[in-house]
């Protein structure tokens, strides 16, 4: 067997799998987003009939329109869902960074024997079910939940706080669930950092705080950027967290898509929501991919 053929097969099998099951579906989503809702199965029109030939294809194309997108842009519900997703994703990415940076910094400075254990400690929750971890917060944040019980017991508040079913609960849920994604890339850059650079900065008259801003932070930047993308992108399309913790008044794109599809059975609108979400995320995803590839190259 020729080496060329073997190499060809090696490339073709995973490539074909991803083309069929990852890339091709997007074109179907795009096509359905341009179709109209119909009372039929599948619930949209037109459906493409290959037996009709070229004329049939032209008729099919002429029936496609942007109705679903116009609907999305004019109905305030969807516009609000878009901006609220954007706001929630940006703010929770920032909050995750605030929590993750001191943590990664502490991990990078921990004694050698402790570091692998700390890394393990960050990775372990990532392996445990996402759904269960979000569910764990329901029992804590409810008005008769443990957080309120604790705060009333300590006398800080006298009336239970309404956290559950508000955006605050969604922020907590996202920061909690995606924290490992933020911590690990930052830790990786801080751990590799050459401490003598800091020493040099201090010798040259920098204060500790200034040295941190001028040396540590710029060197940690690649990790910070990678972490921010890893949190922002999935947060933007999050479904489980807003549905479980955010209540009915917290709108997000992922939730809207789910409801359009499963509750309203409006496949064209659900597909249009998916396309809008995808277009919003294309730029961050491409930047993330470039970054990941560059890191792989650097490891070589």
């Amino acid at each position: 067997m020729a080496a060329g053929l073997r190499r060809y097969l090696l490339i073709v099998v995973p490539y074909a799998w991803l083309l069929v099951f990852f890339l091709a579906p997007f074109f179907i989503v795009l096509k359905i987003s341009l179709s109209d809702l119909a009372v039929a199965m599948p619930p949209y029109t037109p459906t493409f009939d290959p037996s009709a030939g070229w004329e049939g294809f032209k008729a099919f194309i002429s029936q496609l329109d942007f109705e679903s997108y116009i609907f999305l842009a004019t109905d305030s519900l969807y516009v609000n869902a878009f901006f609220s997703s954007l706001q929630i994703a940006v703010l929770s990415t920032f909050l995750a960074l605030l929590v993750a940076f001191p943590m990664a910094y502490g991990m990078a400075r921990a004694p050698d024997w402790l570091r692998p254990l700390l890394v393990m400690g960050v990775i372990l929750p990532f392996w445990t079910s996402f759904l269960i971890r979000v569910y764990a917060w329901v029992g804590i944040l409810r008005s008769e939940g443990l957080l309120n019980q604790f705060l009333i017991w300590t006398g800080i508040i006298s009336e239970p706080l309404q956290i559950m079913n508000t955006p605050v609960a969604v922020y907590i849920g996202i920061v909690y669930s995606y924290l490992p994604f933020m911590v690990l890339p930052i830790y990786a850059t801080l751990e590799k950092m050459d401490e003598s650079l800091l020493e040099a900065a201090i010798d040259l008259g920098c204060s500790r705080v200034k040295a941190f801003w001028l040396v540590t932070l710029p060197l940690a930047m690649p990790g910070i950027i990678a972490g921010c993308f890893l949190v922002f992108i999935p947060a933007m399309g999050e479904f489980v967290i807003p549905e479980l913790l955010g209540g009915s008044r917290t709108l997000m794109m992922g939730k809207t898509l789910w409801n359009e599809f499963f509750s309203n059975r409006d496949w064209p609108v659900a597909s249009a929501v998916a396309i809008v979400l995808l277009l919003t995320l294309v730029v961050p995803i491409v930047i993330f991919q470039r970054q990941a590839e560059r890191q792989q190259e650097a490891g070589r």
């Binding site: 990852f22 179907i28 993308f229 890893l230 999935p234 898509l257 789910w258 998916a274 979400l277």
Partner: peptide
């Protein structure tokens, strides 16, 4: 990083 809802729907 692709949101689950997009992969699932598509």
């Amino acid at each position: 990083v692709m949101p689950d809802v997009i992969i699932g729907l598509s």
